[in-house]
Every structure is written in structure tokens, then in C-alpha cells.
Design a binder for these strands. Sequence first.
DNA 1: TTGAAAGCGGTACCAC
DNA 2: GTGGTACCGCTTTCAA
Lengths: 343, 343
Amino acid sequence: MGLKNRAGEKRPERANRMEDVAAAAGVSLATVSRVFSQPELVSEATREKVHAVAKRMRYLPNLLAGGMAANQSRVISAMVPVISSAIFAQTIEGLSSGLHGTGYELMLSQSSYEPEQEYSILRAFLGRRADGIVVAGAVRDPHCRELLLHSGTPVVEMWELLEEPIDMAVGFSNHHAAQAAADYLLGRGYRNFGFIGGTDQRTADRQKGFYEAVRAAGLPAPRQVLIHSPSPSSFDAGGQAMARLLDENAGIDVVFCTNDLLAVGALFECQRRGLPVPGRVAVMGFSDLDIGQVSVPPLTTVQVGAYEIGRQASRMLLARLTGAPQETRIVDTGFSIVRRQSA
Amino acid sequence: MGLKNRAGEKRPERANRMEDVAAAAGVSLATVSRVFSQPELVSEATREKVHAVAKRMRYLPNLLAGGMAANQSRVISAMVPVISSAIFAQTIEGLSSGLHGTGYELMLSQSSYEPEQEYSILRAFLGRRADGIVVAGAVRDPHCRELLLHSGTPVVEMWELLEEPIDMAVGFSNHHAAQAAADYLLGRGYRNFGFIGGTDQRTADRQKGFYEAVRAAGLPAPRQVLIHSPSPSSFDAGGQAMARLLDENAGIDVVFCTNDLLAVGALFECQRRGLPVPGRVAVMGFSDLDIGQVSVPPLTTVQVGAYEIGRQASRMLLARLTGAPQETRIVDTGFSIVRRQSA
DNA sequence: TTGAAAGCGGTACCAC
DNA sequence: GTGGTACCGCTTTCAA
């Protein structure tokens, strides 16, 4: 006979409401409400009876109505440039885990790196009265800032260490992290740098830091390939960029990529050409994704705690929403150089 | 002077409501409501005045209140086992894209492959009155089925081709896809099979199909390594499984992995051992992720359209919600063998 | 410990 | 084309 499905299922006209439960249990609407939201105010006998009746009637409290009356949606809304990039997917996972079991639900939207979309997404979030908003990256567009600022909604900007966040921020210094990466490579004796990156703000920060350190060492600026596609992170783009770098610059002995996806793509390109890594050319990544731990050779990279950033963002929001005392508005999750074998 | 942040920002006591806008614009509440939801019913003059006033007052319609009155949340809720796995991340991205610009927002939750969590997540979705629910994988737990069935909410089960979905389904036959993979390998002349997979239902279906084809060819069952971790997809697990397979079975000439993450991990393990792929041992994956297109060698795999599945799910839901006629309840997105170089 | 009733911020039907 | 108004389903004083 198999599992039941919807065929032949007759549905009740209308879902039961609190009022129906109250009537069936012989108590008032207010009492039923208390049973679900402040059970300690109700006598045990009443509580049990209401629960029994509710269960029998398949009553499911309408959280929308509840939220509206209590003026809170219990929704945290998150905006990321792209969902499927391993980098942000991890942050989202951290967020989701942090929210698990708290009664808050996660709403998610992607901006595809387009400013106009950011604005409309944020408006949608506010229109739905999100209790908190989290954004991957700093909100730089003045209209968006203004919108958020004026809304009074708690906001966390992630992935950058902002001096003047709209409200709260969690991340690390992209500048310093890339600088540290360059210093590490310098320390390993590399002198002819290649650089593969994108054009978004975070990547630009990384580039600045990296170039600064290289310059400080008295070396010429790296040969660079910038990926102008909206999403500056794909294996494929990394491979192509590496190919150009290799074709146009014979002497390069190390290539720094602004994220691990690009780096692994670059690694594959070397492999395709039979160039030993790091023997002929070294490769360093940024972000410390799973893949870099198992690639051949395993990827030297900068660990920045993508998951932890999301997790921390949820913590900060929750703290604010529960009125926890003296919260920190800006959290530096730091970074560390992970030395493996590719550089 | 830098960007403005929240410091020194004084916030208005309460956000403006429709009533406030109405008063300021000298029209009735009902008119303002129409301006936002059925503008064609309002004269252009009134419409413009209201818009102007609303803008000046920074009025943002409360979608929660609107939804409550109209009995619709305009939220689609999705449940996946894990968010950060490339496989599901793509499906989520497809869903999100499909919803973009429709006025529907995406709510997301992960079950971590735990049945108890599934139930509570679904309850939360229903409690929030999602207009539609989409689930990665069939809902097999009777309580969950019952819950969904009785709720009357449109439901799409993804990633499997169900004969009796709760409501709607979009996916492909895991059984047939794996069977086709085996047939492909058989056709290429491989005879000594290895199998790396997990223990969840979809994986089990793939295993059955694969083994069936192998048996039908008169060959002994593959040597298998099953990953019992809750999440049967990581590069690392693939590498470890491959190591075991290689250590314990000298004669294996091809290994089929139930997803590309495992397959790429396996690929790396071969590389670590200096075993040529497919020369010494071939590797075939399943799912066709980005990484398999650029790995060395590029991965022969089964393409199943992870993104397209999500996209299609959103289409079906939207069609139902807008009352589109004669929709198909079960959509087979099919699969195809992608021959590259690893097998 | 329980109940009555005034919102929460809109939608939509019905008149005019 | 516009306004009046009865809900939508729950939370939360305030009284009893």
C-alpha cells in the first residue's frame, strides 16, 4: 500500500486557531496563548488539558500572527553575493547552526554582486520585519546604508573589519591577512610574484596588503591577472588566470590567489602543464576551504574561519535581541597562515 | 568624513504605518493600501501623492501584516541535509534564482541528516505559514509525511523520482542513473569494480542500480567502501575510502563514487600514490560539480542538474501558487553521462 | 490562575 | 475612484 500521499486527502476547510482550541478545552483564548508562550503562568492541570486538546486538533500556532502581535518576526535575514560559492556557503552554514534551536529562522537572498539588487533585497528584508540582518561584506552603497541605519534593525556586516560599521561587524583585516601571506612567501625565499584576484572590495583590500608587503621588501610589483567576472571565485577562472600568468611571465616563482578556489584551479593548470608545485612555481591560496586540505599538493593558504564568521554573527545578533549586556560591536576573528606544501 | 554609522543616530519612536501615510496624504487607509497592492484601481493623481508622502515618511509596508490579512506569507521554505555541500548549495542557488523578482523570499534550514530535526524544522516552517515547502530528498518519516500531508501546503520533494510524492516531486532516477554509469563503464571495458558511497537513501538507490548492472553483465559485485558518517560527501572521505580500496584490492581497475566530491578525493589519493588515472585505475563520479570539469584528469561523471532541480522546484511551486493550469506533479529532470578523461 | 478586550498593521468586501 | 470597516490570529495589559 506504500506511503500516503495527497491523492484522496480531504483537507479541513480552515486550520484550527487558538480560539478553536480554547473552546474545545473550555478555557479562554488568553489561557491557550499563555500555555504556549508563558506556560509557567498556567496551572499544570490546565496546561495539560490544553496541550492534549491542541494535539488532538493538530493545532499549530501561527507564528506570523504571534510575531505581529508581539512585534517580532523571529527571522534573521542574510544577504550574500552568491550562495553556491564554497566560501559563503560555509558562512551561511555557520549562521544556520548558530540559529538552530533558538526559535529564529534564517531567510536568505543573493545579490549576485549587483548593487541595485542589494537595495531591493534589503527593502524586502525590512518589509518582512526581520529581527536582524546580516550581510556578507560591508554595505558601502549610501542608499543601502541609509536604509539600514534608519530602520533600527540590528545589522551585522561580515568578512571585513570595519571601523565604522552600520551597527556591528565581524571579520578580519583583509589587508593584514594578505600582507601576512606576502611576508610568509618572502620568508620562504620567493621573489618573483604573480597575483590572481578579482575586483570586488575585499579582494582589492587583499591586493593592497599583498602589494604593500612586496614593495616594502624592495621588490617589483607582482605580475597580476584580475578576474573581471562578477564572481571572482571559480576553479576555472583560476586555471585560466594561471595559464596567462605562466604564458606571459617566464620567471614567476610563486603565485598568490585571493581565494582557494582560484588557487586550486591554478594548481590544476600547473599539473596540466607538468610543472611541479612548488618546485617550479609555488601557489598560495586564501580562505582555507576543504579542498585545499586534500589537493595534491595540499594548499598553503590563509585561514580565515568562514564558518566561524557566520556563527559569530548569529551570536552577536542573538545577544542583541535578548538584550545581553555589554556586547562587543566589532569582532575580529583573525586569520592565520596555514603552511602546507604548495608554497 | 567617512560613512555614517549608527552612533549618534536618533531613531523615531515607531515606524510609520499605513494609517500615518493616509493621514498625511489626506486619503483613507484603504486608498493607501490600494496604491501599493492594486495601483490600477487608484487615480494617477492620488497614486502620485501617496507615493510622494510615503517616500518622505520612509514608509515601508509591513509585509507580515499584509500577509496575515491576505492569508499568505510569500515565503518558500527549504530544508536540506547540509547547506555547505556543493551539491545542495547549487540546488539552493537554483531555488533562490527562481524566486528572484517574484516577491517570494526563501527560508532555509538544514537537518544534518537527522530525522528528529526534520520534524521540528517542518513544524517551524508550517508554524510560519510558508506558502510552499521544498525538501531535498524524499520525506520518508511517516510523522513528517503526515504533517505535511495534512497541512495542505504545497510541497516539492527534490532529488528523487518519486512515484508517490506527498504533493510534487522533481528529480531523476538515482537507480537508473547509476545503472547507466555502470553500463558506460562496462562499455569502456572495465571489469573489476570498486564502489565508494554513503548510506543515505539516495546513495543506496544509486548503489542498487549500479550493482544490478554489474551483476547483469555477469560480473562479481564491486568491492565497496561505505562511508557511515552522516554526511556522505567530502573530499577527505573520498580519499580515505580510495586508500582502503586500493590497499585491500589489488586488481581493481575502476572505482565509481556516488558523488563528485568523493570522486575528486579519490582522484587526489591516486595522485598521491602516483597511480595514473585512468591508466592504472579509472574513477567516475556522480553529480557533475564544477570541480570535476577542471580536475586533472577531468572527471567522467553523471550530470544530474543540481541547479536545475532547484530552479524547477521553484517553478512548480510558483505555478501552483499562482493557480496556473494543468501543472505536472512529477518532473523528471533526467541525467546524462558526461565522458571526460578519468574513466 | 484566568478572562475580557484592545491592539499589531494591513486586506478586501461593500457602499457610495 | 474612494472610504468605512470587519476581519486575519495572536499577545498582552488590566481586572476579576
